[in-house]
Structure formats: C-alpha cells, structure tokens
C-alpha cells in the first residue's frame, strides 16, 4: 500500500477516448483532492488505452493506472470487480469514484462489499467536512422527492457513483504533467463462474438522447403505441429525439432504450417537450437539467406544470397536430 492515500476514479473509455461522463467525474474528483490534499488517480481498463491515458493527464489526473484487458462490454462484470479490488488493495484509495452508468451501478456495490468499504450510489454532490474530513454524500431518495446527505463514519474507503450531468466536464490543460502506471492483471479468475455470451448495443435511430438539442417525450398519457406517431412527427420537424417515461417503457409501447429518468437516460437538451407526462420525480430526475421544459397535459393539476417553463392544458391529440402544423410553417 502506498504511504499517501489518493482519490481513485474508475474511468470509462469509448472508441479509445475518455467518455464525457468520466470527464465530469474528473471535475468532481479534482475538487475532493484539493480539499483532502490528496492526488487524483484514474484507472482505465481495456485495449488501446494509451491515448486515453495521456488525455487523462491533461484533464487533471496525477496518475493513470492502465490495465490492458477486455473492455467492459466484453466482460462478465465480476472480472472488473476482481481487477478493481486488486488495484485498490495495492494503492489504498480513500475514495473510489464511478459514474452511475451501466458499469458503475453494477460494480460499485459488490466492490464495496469486497473491500469492507462504505458505498453510496447515484450521488449528485460530494463534499469534505472541513472538521472531520469525512465524505458528505448528497443523494436523491424517495424517487427524488427528498435529498439525503450522508457522512461516512469509518476510515475505510468510500465507494461512490455520481449521477451524470452533475458536474462540468474537466477541460484539458496541455501544461499538465502526470504519471502513467501500467498494472499487471494478476487476478485469480477461477472463482468467477459467469460468462458473457452476447452484447447488443442498439443503434438508437437518429440522434443520441444525451446529445440531442431537442427531445419530445411521451408518457403514460399517450395511451399506447400508436400515439407515438405524433410524438415522432413533432421530433422530426424540430430535429429532435424521442424519449419515453417509465409507463411506455414498462408497457412496451416504445423500445426501452428511449427511457428518460431515474431508471433510464439523463438528458439536458435546450428544449424538452413533455407530452402526457404527470411529472413524477423519478422522471424529472432525468430531464430537470433541460434549458426549457414545455408541458402538454390535460390535467391542470399535473405535477409537470410545476417543473415546466411553458405549458398547455389540453389533450395531446388536440394539441400536437396543430403544434406540428404551425412549427412546420414557422420552420419552412
């Protein structure tokens, strides 16, 4: 174990580049490092990660651990738990940061259990208590109805996942220096009995939700598959993407990959049009970062109107055809 503790970020790489969500995590991690007077380290696992490791140093990592191995989407998750636990046992981090992604939410709890660490998923803010130096973890609870702030109570490492879009991306600084430390994977995998058979990443038609400037989202009020034709039409005219809330997802009206909210994508477009959505906090968790929210709902008491900038009280089948026509004319 090293003599000085560090903050360790478990980073994610896509197409040999550090993901935007990991860049957000680096901003969060850097802030903690300043308060704790500890260095910031980043762990990257995968193939062809040298370029990403160099990039990480410019983004603020003092040290980058590189482990050449199978990428996340090619692995049974427990391999990753073993690899990361092994590295943590060597380096002794004070805080281990993940994003609340497919990888983070899967690995963080089991890793914490293995390390005897504390754990908190889906945090939106982290701070160091100036007196006790304990880690203060703010996390939405009760579907976003409330916020809880927890303080770590032991000297064990704290494993955290951060909700995406809760920090700005770290910006590269070409004058920064750091160290790249290759780590040999000497993990005994004989205990891991599961196997990955297949990974399918659906090509979301059109624009990716996270990158969309405009999103039109349909909720339970749409009533069935067929109502989404109007949503798609409006999305097409405005050059936007189609989202869904949990009801259409669970009912199978649209593919699950479109879901926005606590159990789906976290988005922050310039324009978010919520159609037939009641505005449960679980849904708002995924879209409250939008610059402008429009609510279309026939129930004037719907909670979504408390979150929207503009609203129309009316049935979507009466609103959307007119709105589509008018937008078509305005944008022609």
């Amino acid at each position: 174990m090293s003599d000085k503790k560090e903050v360790l970020i478990c980073g994610e790489v896509k197409g040999e580049k550090i993901t935007t969500i990991t860049k957000e995590l680096m901003t969060t991690g850097r802030k903690l490092c300043i308060d704790l007077n500890q260095p910031l380290s980043l762990l990257l696992i995968g193939q062809n990660i040298q370029e990403a490791a160099n990039e990480a140093i410019l983004l603020g990592a003092d040290k980058v651990y590189t482990a050449e191995g199978a990428s996340w989407v090619e692995s049974f998750p427990e391999h990753y738990v073993s690899i990361i636990a092994d590295i943590c046992n060597q380096t002794g981090p004070s805080i281990i940061l993940f994003s609340q992604t497919d990888m983070g939410r899967d690995i963080a709890p089991r890793l914490a259990a293995r390390l005897g660490a504390g754990v908190c998923l889906d945090c939106i803010e982290l701070a160091i208590d100036p007196d006790t130096k304990s880690l203060l973890q703010t996390k939405p609870v009760y579907g976003g109805n409330a916020m809880a702030v927890w303080a770590s109570t032991n000297n064990k490492p704290q494993v955290i996942t951060m909700r995406p879009r809760t920090a700005a991306q770290a910006e590269p600084d070409t004058s920064r220096k750091g160290e790249i430390v290759p780590v040999a994977l000497d993990v005994n995998n004989s205990m891991i009995k599961g196997k990955l058979l297949e990974t399918l990443q659906e090509d979301v038609k059109g624009i990716r939700l996270e990158e969309a400037k405009v999103i039109i989202t349909g909720g339970g009020g749409i009533g069935g598959k067929e109502g989404f034709q109007l949503i798609k039409e409006l999305a097409q005219i405005l050059g936007g993407a189609v989202g869904i809330s949990r009801v259409p997802c669970d009912e199978g009206w649209m593919p699950a990959g479109h879901e926005i909210g606590q159990t789906g994508h976290m988005v922050s477009p310039d324009l978010y049009i919520a159609v037939g959505i009641s505005g449960a906090p679980q849904h708002l968790a995924g879209c409250s970062g939008s610059k402008c929210i429009i609510a279309i709902n026939k129930d004037p008491e719907a909670h979504i109107f408390k979150e929207a900038d503009f609203g129309i009280v009316g049935y979507y089948r009466e609103v959307l055809p007119v709105l589509i026509e008018k937008c078509r004319n305005l944008l022609a």
Binding site: T101, L196, L197, E198, T199, L200, Q201, E202, G257, G264
Partner: peptide, 8 residues
C-alpha cells in the same frame, strides 16, 4: 443496458 442488452 442503457443502449441495449447483454446476455450472460
């Protein structure tokens, strides 16, 4: 997963 699925 967020964009699809995996089978184990």
């Amino acid at each position: 997963t967020l964009d699809g699925y995996q089978i184990f």
